[in-house]
Nucleic acid binder design. Structure first.
Lengths: 137, 137
DNA sequence: TCAATTTATTACTGATCAGTAGTATAACAA
DNA sequence: TTGTTATACTACTGATCAGTAATAAATTGA
């Protein structure tokens, strides 16, 4: 069972629309809050730095601190948030604690955003170029 | 030119890894900040409500207010944020201002998160069921 | 046992932001 | 013009949160 079917059984569902073309339309505010909370976890560059640092494989906390340049308490806090969101997994090995990506789809998300941003930036720079050409003429 | 190539020209790039398997590893903190800022726009349930309200087509501000139940000033503020992020487009028609989704990939993002969350919830409920069975035995 | 290392937690501060009341602006109608 | 409707803006408040210093806890080695 996925979230859509869970939500489609909830009372606040709008059943006047078809299933195929508008899954998001049916989501209740409570479900949207869950989605928003997940996006919030990824909305801090420090946490994205940690995620990127784990892209090539697991690291312990000290290695993450070194890779990101963040403070120890800060990294520990962010790792807790990432773990609670199910984005990283924790594994203790003696004194050290190793973290790894638990859900690789975060990279898919980030790359989608990157691609969209690059298109936006390209369009903006083209518009600026047009404006420049117009000003000179 | 996309963001990846932009970033791969920046000095802080890690060139010890291959291009295909780790685009995100190369992103500078500045680029990650842009990605984080985009996620932040989607990290409020009110804004996701507005996005969902526009899923089936454009709406003017009054219609969005009615669809979401949010306050007028609040909706206006969120629409400005969504427009600045390039997620919605603004179009004035007489007294009314119509907004529509400018970049449909936000739905792709949301559905990816929804699917991931549903898997997590399902796994959690299975774990709880196992624990229950263990407790009874 | 004692010291060193690694990670987590707590308490605090400053910054950011959502929501709102009030106000401004602009278009249309009478 | 005057009033009405639709939208945007400003200023404010309370809540949330990132970063940090200090401390705690747990493991390892001497």
């Amino acid at each position: 069972m996925n979230l859509s079917t869970m939500v489609s059984r909830a009372p606040q569902v709008d059943s006047t629309t078809t299933d195929s073309d508008c899954r998001l339309v049916k989501l209740s505010p409570e479900t949207l809050q869950l989605v928003a909370d997940f996006f919030k976890v990824l909305s801090e560059s420090s946490r994205l730095q940690i995620v990127c640092a784990l892209k090539l494989g697991e690291k312990n906390v000290s290695e993450i601190i070194e890779a990101t340049g963040l403070g120890q308490a800060n990294v520990s806090k962010h790792l807790k948030i990432l773990a609670q969101a199910g984005i990283v997994k924790r594994q203790q090995q003696g004194v050290c604690v190793y973290y790894q990506i638990a859900n690789a789809f975060v990279f898919e998300l980030c790359e989608l955003v990157c691609d969209s941003l690059s298109v936006q930036i390209q369009q903006q720079s083209e518009q600026i170029a047009h404006l420049e050409a117009f000003r000179k003429a």
